[in-house]
């Protein structure tokens, strides 16, 4: 598979690899997986409690080059945004930025899921009203 230059750049020189203390009040952790290819992606954010700005982000992904690049890019993009701004990042933005081919679109979906999951976790911890927790799970697949 021919990777785009941007994918190769993130893959060979990933930004923000690492981990944060998941028990910290200011840290939100998202752990998601793409079963089609067996990838697993962890993305963590550190949020300023006053400004709600994401001051730092870390990731660790086990998967293909596109999954690593998607999560690396995701950490770059969320940094400096407020949690609400970060929620507007769409997988299609990642596809466009990295020129991902159709067979790798699920990697970008995974990265968006990871951002949402990390923000959801942070909101839960900090008692920020999130509709998410009030609702029953929407899909039963995977029971």
């Amino acid at each position: 598979m021919a990777y785009s230059d941007k994918v190769l750049d993130h893959y060979t020189n990933p930004r923000n690899v690492g981990s944060m203390d998941k028990n910290s009040q200011a840290v939100g952790t998202g752990l998601v997986g793409a079963p089609e290819c067996g990838d697993v992606m962890k993305l963590q954010i550190q949020v300023n409690p006053q400004t709600k700005v994401i001051e730092d982000a870390k990731f660790k992904t086990f998967g293909c080059g596109s999954a690593i690049a998607s999560s690396s890019l995701a950490t770059e993009w969320v940094k400096g945004k407020t949690v609400d701004e970060a929620l507007s990042i769409k997988n299609t933005d990642i596809v466009r930025e990295l020129s991902l081919p159709p067979v790798k679109i699920h990697c970008s979906v995974l990265a968006e899921d990871a951002i949402r999951a990390a923000i959801g976790d942070w909101k839960k911890k900090n008692g920020v009203a999130a509709q998410a927790e009030a609702h029953a799970p929407m899909a039963k697949a995977g029971d």
Binding site: L31, V32, G33, A34, P35, E36, V40, L87, K90, N91, I105, H106, V109, E112, D113, R116, A117, G120, A130, Q131, A132, E133, H135, P137, M138, A139, A141, G142
Partner: peptide, 27 residues
Amino acid sequence: EEQSKAATDKARQTGEEKKQVIPPELL
């Protein structure tokens, strides 16, 4: 894959949490 993408689209629109198809303990 379509299901996964559709679930992400829904999560984006409604703000609901997308339920991962893999149980969290396994992940």
